[in-house]
Computed example of a mutant assay.
Amino acid sequence: MSAYYEYPRRMSTTKNRAGIFAVLGAALCFGTTGTTQQLGVPDISPVAVASARLLCGSAFLFVFAYFQRKTRGDVRMPLLDLIICGVGIGMYQLTFFSAVHSTGIAIATVTALGSAPTLSAIVAYLVLREKPQKSWYLGTSVTVLGIILVGTADGVESFEPKGVGLAVLAGLGFAIFNVVCRKSLARGAQDMWLTATTFGVAALVSFPFLFTENPKWIFTTQGFLTVLWLGLVTTSIGYVLFMFGLKRIESSLAATVVLAEPATATILAAIVIGEALFLQSYIGIAIVALGILLTSRTKN
Rank of each mutant, 00 (worst) to 15 (best):
I292P: 07
L241A: 07
Q190Y: 15
T143S: 12
T14S: 15
V144K: 04
K131N: 07
K134F: 06
L172T: 08
A263R: 04
L79R: 07
A167L: 01
T198A: 08
M91L: 15
T266Y: 10
N16E: 13
F62K: 09
L241V: 02
T195V: 06
S115T: 15
V258L: 06
L210D: 01
I218M: 08
A59F: 14
A270W: 14
S236C: 06
R182N: 14
V257H: 05
E130V: 04
A269I: 11
L126R: 10
V179I: 08
F97D: 06
I237C: 11
V142C: 02
I89K: 10
S296W: 06
C56K: 06
E130G: 10
L210P: 11
L28K: 04
T140D: 11
I84G: 08
A124N: 08
L55C: 09
A121T: 04
G40S: 03
G163S: 06
F159C: 08
R53N: 03
V272E: 09
A27W: 04
G291L: 03
T33K: 05
V41T: 06
K70M: 09
Y137N: 02
Y125R: 10
W217T: 05
P132E: 12
K183G: 04
A175W: 00
L128M: 08
Y125K: 11
A276T: 15
G173L: 00
G231F: 01
I273A: 07
G274A: 11
V288S: 11
S206W: 01
Y125E: 03
F224V: 00
T13P: 05
W229V: 09
I218W: 01
F96R: 10
A22F: 05
L128W: 04
R53A: 00
F174V: 04
L259K: 01
V179E: 04
A52G: 09
A59T: 15
Q190I: 02
T212L: 15
M1H: 04
R182D: 10
L294S: 05
T197C: 11
F174W: 15
G86P: 14
F21G: 06
M91A: 14
G25W: 02
M77L: 00
G171M: 10
D191P: 06
G200V: 01
T103Y: 13
G25P: 02
R72E: 14
Q190K: 08
L94P: 13
K162P: 03
F177A: 07
R129T: 01
S236L: 09
V227L: 03
L54H: 06
S135G: 07
S51E: 00
K162Y: 14
A18K: 05
S135D: 13
L268T: 01
I83M: 09
L290I: 12
P132N: 04
F159W: 14
S236F: 01
A65P: 13
T295A: 10
L126D: 02
D154V: 08
M11Q: 14
G34L: 05
L169H: 05
A167F: 00
A124S: 07
N16M: 15
L279G: 15
C29K: 07
P78V: 00
A196M: 02
Y282P: 13
T143I: 12
L232C: 12
L225F: 09
V179L: 04
W193T: 14
A254K: 10
A26K: 02
A269L: 13
T234N: 11
Y92C: 15
R9I: 12
L94C: 14
L126P: 01
K70C: 15
V144W: 07
W217Y: 07
T298W: 03
